[in-house]
Simulated assay, not measured.
Amino acid sequence: MEEYVLMIVRTIFLYIVILFIFRVMGKREIGELSVLDLVVFIMIAEMAVMAIENPKDPLIHTIIPMFLLMGIQIILAYVSLKSQRIRDVIDGKPSVIINNGKIDEKVMRKQRYNFDDLLIQLRDKNVKNVADVEFAILEPSGKLSVFEKKKNEGSSADQDQDKDKEQEEGSLNLPLIMDGKIQEEHLKKVNKTNLWLRQQLRSLGYKDFKNISFCSYDNGVFFIDLKDE
């Protein structure tokens, strides 16, 4: 019985200590945590678990490393505020995935970021067509900042016609080619064939689809991005 009481007391105490440490380290959203923040949080959590599971081990053996990590994190955070170079090393730099409407595959490869990742995050921003994106920046936190191209404003009648057309076609704007490979499943979903796609690409001057990094089709318009040489 005494062991269980000790475990409860240690749990409550460590809970208060961790709350204090996190409050001192500052407020940041989970999605905005840097690699340094994440490492510190994981290590502190692991120490707390080990201290709770081993009630015979003195709490001081856990408290000292926790406060040491807190001190390291605060010092590095302060230094990074003063130095852009150190901040880039600790937090990383934003990476421009789409620049002036052009997908940069070299940056994607460097960040180990694939087209599925890009499409998922674009859909999360309610952007269904890559062709609508002027700039897409992968932030150090892993979030994607998206800036869409400016659309020409027409009359209300034209806008109504465009909406009706869009509703009639009901396009999902699925990628038809990714990394030089034709997406057969996506072609079936839009009721198109491999032969149709090849013919359309040839008519547009693209003889070898393997040179295409990304291709989508929306409302009768192709968006094609060639691989970087």
Rank of each mutant, 00 (worst) to 15 (best):
residue 2 E to A: 09
residue 2 E to T: 12
residue 2 E to C: 00
residue 7 M to C: 06
residue 12 I to M: 08
residue 13 F to N: 04
residue 17 V to R: 02
residue 18 I to L: 14
residue 19 L to E: 05
residue 20 F to H: 07
residue 21 I to F: 08
residue 22 F to S: 06
residue 33 L to R: 05
residue 35 V to E: 00
residue 49 V to Q: 12
residue 53 E to C: 04
residue 57 D to G: 03
residue 59 L to S: 10
residue 60 I to S: 14
residue 62 T to H: 01
residue 64 I to G: 03
residue 66 M to A: 13
residue 67 F to Y: 07
residue 69 L to G: 03
residue 74 I to Q: 08
residue 78 Y to R: 14
residue 82 K to T: 10
residue 86 I to D: 05
residue 87 R to Y: 13
residue 93 K to S: 12
residue 95 S to V: 08
residue 99 N to A: 06
residue 102 K to W: 03
residue 103 I to E: 03
residue 103 I to D: 03
residue 108 M to G: 02
residue 109 R to S: 12
residue 117 D to K: 02
residue 117 D to V: 06
residue 119 L to F: 13
residue 120 I to L: 09
residue 131 A to I: 01
residue 131 A to C: 06
residue 132 D to A: 14
residue 133 V to M: 02
residue 135 F to I: 03
residue 142 G to E: 11
residue 143 K to S: 15
residue 144 L to H: 03
residue 150 K to D: 09
residue 151 K to V: 11
residue 152 N to V: 12
residue 152 N to T: 09
residue 153 E to P: 00
residue 154 G to Y: 08
residue 158 D to F: 12
residue 160 D to A: 14
residue 163 K to A: 14
residue 165 K to P: 01
residue 165 K to Y: 15
residue 173 N to Q: 07
residue 176 L to R: 01
residue 177 I to Y: 09
residue 178 M to C: 11
residue 181 K to V: 15
residue 181 K to Q: 15
residue 185 E to R: 06
residue 191 N to D: 14
residue 197 L to G: 01
residue 197 L to Q: 04
residue 198 R to Y: 14
residue 198 R to S: 10
residue 207 K to W: 12
residue 210 K to I: 09
residue 211 N to M: 12
residue 211 N to V: 10
residue 216 S to P: 04
residue 221 V to A: 14
residue 225 D to P: 06
residue 226 L to D: 14
residue 228 D to T: 14
residue 228 D to S: 15
residue 229 E to W: 10
